[in-house]
Design a binder for these strands. Structure first.
Ligand code: FES
Ligand code: FES
Lengths: 137, 137
DNA sequence: TTAAATTACTACGACGGTATAGCATATCAG
DNA sequence: CTGATATGCTATACCGTCGTAGTAATTTAA
């Protein structure tokens, strides 16, 4: 898997919230809507809340609301919080350094491709995703 | 990490063998040359041997020799044996199916990029790597 | 006021990738 | 032959990701 399951869940939750007309989402609602394991998603929601992507409202009639402007949230922002982006930036063969000056045998062909991938992760925003009008969550 | 450590080790071992003038490599030699954990590399060499990339010669003066024509070994062949390629072919968000007809919200932007990445893994051969003349292992 | 609805915290278990250790097996130089 | 030099096999431990479970804390509708 390119992304960990947790990152996949995180992206799915946020894209779901962003494209819905609702404002407040309970954990229960999200679990049902997205078919993500109950307790696992609850933990993740707390993480996303602490990271500032969503805001939690405790108590009866509580839930979660989006906290940041959707066009400001990039895929890489989400991944950074969950897994860290570092793993996607390193040498493909695992060497400690990676640069044009000290390349491994795959660097020449791989580095440009990796740049495209990183560009995709860093420049794709949730707002852009919403415009796809896709309802698969 | 895009590749697992085991796959990284496998590629490094084979690229090392292919660019050297030696014919037979003992596990001991490879462990020293590549700084890969002793027992772990030994296991991996057995795996690579069973998979047909190298041939093992047991007993005194034994070791491993390349078994297949270098220009026939692709990165994806190696990865397939170690981890399986499936993880690189699936939906980025983890949905069971992935196609233009049933896309997730990231499919449109991601799919073409993934194709490039798969093309890189499937079309890059060890022989091509050797021509880079890079001695970082 | 109280009970229901809701999020927060923490500990535990399952699983796969990574790494280590010991013993068994094979071959050949001498 | 025999000892030294190799590879082969299997069990175990560690760690991070994934998933489950129970309990505490918070808020508000009724
Ligand atoms: S040095 Fe290996 S990918 Fe850059
Ligand atoms: S459906 Fe998700 S990447 Fe193709």
């Amino acid at each position: 898997m390119i992304l960990t399951k947790t990152s996949q869940y995180a992206v799915r939750v946020l894209t779901y919230m962003i494209q819905s007309d609702l404002r407040v989402f309970s954990a229960h609602h999200l679990i049902k809507a997205l078919s993500i394991p109950d307790k696992y998603l609850r933990q993740l929601l707390t993480t996303l809340s602490k990271a500032g992507f969503i805001k939690s409202i405790r108590g009866r009639e509580g839930g979660y609301v989006l906290a940041r402007n959707p066009d400001k949230i990039r895929l890489s922002d989400i991944i950074e919080v969950i897994d860290g982006m570092e793993r996607y930036e390193r040498c493909l063969l695992g060497f400690p350094s990676c640069s044009d000056d000290n390349p491994c045998s795959l660097h020449r062909k791989w580095a440009p491709l990796r740049e495209q991938m990183l560009h995709f992760l860093r420049e794709t925003t949730l707002d852009e995703i919403r415009q796809n009008d896709i309802t698969k969550f």
